[in-house]
Design a protein around this nucleic acid. Structure first.
Lengths: 189, 189
DNA sequence: GTCTATAGTCCGATAGAC
DNA sequence: GTCTATCGGACTATAGAC
């Protein structure tokens, strides 16, 4: 056993999610979060660049998952199909965490600053995806557009998955559905 | 003549763009911006909720322009075509302001916090667009997707318009081009 | 771990326009 | 008198520097 209780970072994340949920993001101070986790304010800011960052995973497993999935899709697949396959396989990361995801999204939905951070994380995800597409030989306007459009479909699917009651629909199923709707919209049924 | 020089807000916007450009967003304080505009820090914060907001127009003409354009598109047009028409007509707002747009985008590109604010403004634009589509009778997943996809295409077009040298291409032409590329990507050529 | 600057808020004061 | 735009000072939390 070390001198400190293990997983300071995880305890801060947990405490922050609780406090932001209880009294709102702006009403919770970094000091309070740290205290609830048995640490000092200074330690909070050593782990997270700012108050918002504590809600967003550091080494985002979603990035890695998307890239490895994309790299295993057959070369013959069209860009949008490759993106679809990658998104669907990444859904596995969420299946056991629906309640946590709901809590997190509720906190984010209640505060504009947190929404800003969420959006830039999604934009970074789109960049990662576009970069992986370029490695497949997709040239630039198409790579960016396919990535952005894929993320847009994922956002819609995720929103539905979160808001539907209970544990009914599978996220990957909803993603497939959103992408179909997207096609219908673009082709102009 | 009043007691104060006119257009305090405009002077603050001008001073902010200059200072952010000269020494970067983080290195410029609200106090300095206010002083350059002949005002005090306190007045800066009465006009703008925070340091970032000074770069983003208050009553965004882009919102209005998109909505009125969308409302005049024939009912028969498919959602994506309506969005395309609205975006193209809104391009007129930028034609005389390419240099200003370049300056502004350079400042934003240099700072993450400003990118966050930019993204949430674009998200708000997409919401406005989706809402206008719903008024046309487009039902919800399609309305959101058409709006998001339209904004994605616009972003790509705007980026090209800014980065190309001189005053060659027309923005509305680049928007039409991006939307064509989008179609090609989705259909899976 | 302490110390500090900046962001951003709150309350009140002032001075002109109407 | 009311309304509106400015200024002044005190204050807290964030976040970075030492």
């Amino acid at each position: 056993m070390g001198r400190w209780k293990p997983d300071a970072r995880g305890r801060l994340e947990q405490a922050a999610l609780e406090l932001y949920g209880e009294r709102g993001f702006e009403q919770a101070t970094a000091k309070e979060i740290a205290e609830r986790a048995g640490l000092t304010e200074r330690t909070f800011f050593r782990h997270f660049a700012d108050k918002r960052e504590v809600l967003f995973p550091h080494a985002n497993p979603l990035h890695e998952s998307l890239v490895t999935a994309l790299d295993t899709v057959p070369d013959a697949a069209a860009p949008i199909e490759a993106v679809a396959a990658a998104l669907e396989s990444a859904c596995a990361l969420f299946t056991e965490r629906r309640e946590l995801a709901r809590q997190r999204q509720a906190v984010i939905a209640a505060n504009t600053e947190l929404q800003e951070r969420e959006l830039i994380k999604l934009a970074s995800l789109a960049s990662t995806l576009a970069e992986a597409l370029r490695r497949r030989g997709v040239t630039d306007p198409a790579a960016i557009l396919a990535a952005e459009v894929g993320i847009a479909a994922f956002k819609v699917a995720f929103g539905r998955w979160i808001s539907e009651p209970g544990d009914q629909q599978d996220l990957s199923h909803l993603v497939r559905e959103s992408l179909e709707e997207l096609k219908a919209v673009i082709i102009g049924k």
